[in-house]
Design a protein around this nucleic acid. Structure first.
Lengths: 212, 212
DNA sequence: GTATGATTCAAACGGTCGTTTAAAACGCGA
DNA sequence: TCGCGTTTTAAACGACCGTTTGAATCATAC
């Protein structure tokens, strides 16, 4: 009873149009028309536009977080390539979500990459809460496999990992454009390999407190 | 005659409000009121809201590009720390711009970090054009100091550099939040050191074609 | 078949948006 | 002081926004 056709259609249409035009700029009239529903449908099913926004993110983020945690638990933190394993566990789920969302990396990906710098405090807070648990778990894992780093260094570097990921899924077209088609994020496997290689090396950089 | 007080006030107000609420969400009524000007002032001085947007970015981006190129020309690409020099040349100007803009990293920084994933095609195209020259120069420099990488690898890694930078200036509050104040981007020197260390190591990662 | 709750519908509400207009105010050389 | 181009002003324009309403429609259990 929870999930009518209309509900799902609205979520799909909202995801597509939020991605394409931004959350503010996508109007309920566009969304409901794109979904083949009546204008009032959003307020009926989700209470308000804000409720719709929340639902759009929750639908993708909840499974994402679960898979990230599940994969992290499977990683062997004592292995020589523990860093690569943890990075892969962190990055694989988001790439899978993108592959499965209607418009791929151009759809939910762009929306996702944009969300950290969303102007709306509401949206940011919601996404932050949704990520909180997995972030804590991964920071804990990094404490285990990178014990020689200062706490602040670990956080900075995790921040850079998130940045590279976020930028990659949000601005693929930027990369495709100035690489003149040489690089494309439409192949998630290639993007994953490039990211893991680069980020693992960055994480392995000696701590400021160490001798070179 | 080009630069009246009203013009500058409008640019300042627009920058602040675009940063705080987003470009779409900041209305001309808010902007003109914040600037102590009449509602019609924007359309008089800039033709349209789009013209104002363009002017806000140009004002900061043009000097930014010039300084990036100037610093790159001063770098010694044959030095052992050429990578660090080039990264520093790339990152220093943006940190300086942020320090000089009215609200610091919370002002133009947030706007800047958001702009790559701006929904508006217009804005993205403009910023892309504004960056085009410096991007090409830095890619050329990376070709010199990282000749062993495949062209695609170089571009991916430059993309990650841009991502870490963009994420850092756009989402400082995210970092401050889940580090519980341990890390703060309000000290640009610290942010620069952390970025250069991490990114230089990432750039130095062996090419896929190399033996480990 | 009919009653009941869930869903859809067209229409309207008040409000804000970017832009335009025509008059008023200003700055300043002649 | 006058005249003229520049700038500012108040008011209005049409369009679109998110939301609400109350009736119409639907599905289902009795």
């Amino acid at each position: 009873m929870e999930h009518t056709d209309t509900r799902e259609s609205l979520l799909d249409a909202a995801e597509t149009l939020f991605s394409a035009h931004g959350i503010e700029a996508a109007s309920l009239r566009q969304i409901t028309q794109h979904a083949g529903a009546n204008l009032a449908a959003v307020n009926y099913h989700f209470g308000s536009k804000d409720g719709l926004v929340r639902a759009v993110f929750s639908r993708r983020l909840r499974p994402l977080t679960e898979e990230r945690i599940r994969l992290l638990e499977q990683a062997d933190l004592d292995a020589e390539d523990a860093i690569e394993q943890v990075l892969t566990a962190f990055l694989t789920p988001i790439l899978r979500v993108l592959k499965e969302s209607p418009e791929g990396v151009r759809g939910f990906g762009r929306l996702m990459g944009r969300v950290f710098s969303e102007p709306s405090e509401e949206v940011r807070k919601m996404v932050f809460e949704e990520f909180r648990e997995s972030i804590d778990r991964y920071l804990e894992a990094f404490r285990t496999i990178l014990p020689h780093l200062e706490e602040a260094e670990r956080m900075w570097r995790f921040h850079f990992v998130a940045g590279a990921m976020s930028h990659t899924i949000a601005c693929t077209q930027m990369l495709e454009r100035f690489s003149e088609g040489r690089c494309t994020a439409s192949d998630p496997g290639e993007a994953l390999r490039q990211m893991v290689t680069f980020l693992a090396a960055g994480l392995r950089a000696p701590s400021r407190t160490q001798a070179n």
